[in-house]
Design a protein around this nucleic acid. Structure first.
Length: 425
RNA sequence: GGAGGGGUGGCAGAGCGGUUGAAUGCACUGGUCUUGAAAACCAGCAAGGAUUAACGUCCUUCGAGGGUUCGAAUCCCUCCUCCUCCGCCA
């Protein structure tokens, strides 16, 4: 959420940020609303203050047995009561209205964000690994999986619908191996703290990280309740710190969690319908960091590095791109996507997205920190990134490690997690 | 699901209609004392908002939201949550 005080002191910077997003300037309109809001609050509070004084006088009068005086004062208060109620309601309305506006405005991209309209304008930062040349035509993951009889979309359709999958035997085990490998790497090498969080959250958590109010359509909601399925563990990990004041020494707090994620994929009908690239349910290892404002840029590099390290260890080629203004998510100020090479598709596909939101989410959820021996609190900065998506990583392993006979070599680092298995066939 | 009891400041814990934003203790910060530390003593110590050049003043908040009242942490209603016992259950 945006700080109206920031907008007040930096209207041009605010509008420039919106322009980067392809939005019309809003500062003037918001500041007008704010002015009215403050005026009404002042009016209302003046009256309430007067009432409070009179009420105390009534109390004193009662104490000293001056009943007549008390009655007289009561009359006075009663007169202003209606007026107070009207003003208070009006103030509340104006506050809510302004907050609604502020909640629906996306975060401001960093000024150096590459300009563009969609993912084709993203800027390649670096590439890693050598793209393997096959002496046969590499297959897509679903061909490989189905031929192995270990990836079953048809049966999944029967029990759930489209965009679900059933993995069997060693592919199921491979998915589990990937999860454990990633988590172990994060907690041991990268010193992230592992957490296990709920996958069902309430709407206030979704407001906190920015999925609501604008993107409810992309989420699954549980009927007759305020429960939603998380689209990413970012929601539950980050919101642990809502309405919390953290001691400065505890920062940065770097966490990781493995959860299932649930997305309705409204609006992506027809895209990636084959295979398990785009599912309604998928496992993902997520990373979330809370940091001091001064450290968040470095933390973003660190986090991206953690995700990259997973792919390095798996020895799968990838590239890192910086998202352009048109591709940047609602809450993000700066995002690196990591895209893995998929030989079957002969292209790079997103497997991780690491973002800093600055204080955007922290302000929404009131996650603050206090410096030692300082009175004031400040909002923390929050970062989130996939570290990495399990399902897509499974695809990447399958396609990059496939052999002519349709079997799949198990990457070295995963073998300890697969009981030493070297090939899935 | 049934019965009962709680939710108060960083923590513990009073208050149960009238200067109570909240006693007291611990923790924390500053000071006195001390060679230094401890102890002791003194002082400070909630968040958000409005206003102000600033000092300050004012408003709101005692789980959340409504209500009663001139006035609510204190009374009433609804919800959330925690604990104990019973039932059910992975």
């Amino acid at each position: 959420m945006h700080d109206i005080k920031f907008i007040k002191t930096n209207p041009d910077e605010f509008d420039a940020g919106l322009t980067l997003r392809g939005l019309d300037p809003l500062a003037e309109k918001l500041l007008l609303k704010d002015e009215i809001r403050r005026k009404v609050i002042t009016q209302s509070e003046t009256l309430v203050a007067e009432r409070n004084v009179l009420s105390k006088e009534i109390g004193m009068a009662m104490k000293h047995g001056k009943k007549d005086k008390a009655e007289e004062l009561k009359q006075q208060v009663a007169k202003s009561k209606e007026e107070v109620t009207v003003l208070e309601n009006k103030a509340k309305e104006l506050i809510d209205d302004l907050n609604r506006d502020l909640m629906a405005i996306p975060n401001l991209p960093y000024a150096d964000t590459p300009k563009g309209t969609d993912e084709s304008d993203n800027e390649e930062i670096r590439t890693y690994g050598t793209i393997k040349q096959f002496d046969f035509t590499p297959k897509e993951h679903y061909e490989l999986g189905e031929n192995l009889g270990q990836m079953d979309f048809l049966t999944a359709t029967k029990i759930s619908g489209s965009r679900f999958v059933i993995l069997r035997k060693n592919l199921a085990r491979l998915e589990r191996a990937l999860s454990s490998f990633m988590l172990d790497t994060h907690i041991i090498e990268h010193e992230l703290e592992e957490v296990q969080t709920p996958v069902i959250v309430n709407s206030s958590a979704l407001y906190g990280t920015g999925q609501l109010p604008k993107f409810g359509e992309d989420l699954y909601k549980i009927e007759n309740s305020d429960f939603w399925l998380i689209p990413t563990a970012e929601v539950s990990i980050t919101n642990q710190f809502s309405n919390t004041i953290i001691d400065e020494e505890k920062l940065p707090i770097r966490m990781t969690a493995l959860t299932q994620c649930f997305r309705s994929e409204a609006g992506s009908a027809g895209r990636d319908t084959k295979g398990m690239l785009r599912q309604h349910q998928f496992a993902k290892v997520e990373m979330v960091t809370l940091s001091k404002p001064s450290e968040s840029d470095n933390e973003l590099e660190r986090m991206t590095g953690c995700a990259e390290n997973i792919l390095k260890k798996l020895d799968i080629p990838y590239r890192v791109v910086r998202l352009c203004t048109g591709d940047l998510g609602f809450s993000a100020r700066k995002t690196y996507d990591i895209e893995v090479w998929l030989p079957g598709q002969n292209t790079y596909r997103e497997i991780s997205s690491c973002s800093t939101t600055g204080e955007f989410q922290a302000r929404r959820m009131k996650a603050r920190f206090r410096k030692k021996s300082e009175k004031n609190t400040e909002f923390v900065h929050t970062l989130n990134g996939s570290g990495i998506a399990i399902g897509r990583c499974l695809i990447a392993v399958m396609e990059n490690y496939q052999q002519a006979d349709g079997s799949i070599i198990v990457p070295e680092v995963l073998r300890p997690y697969m009981g030493g298995l070297e090939v899935i066939s």
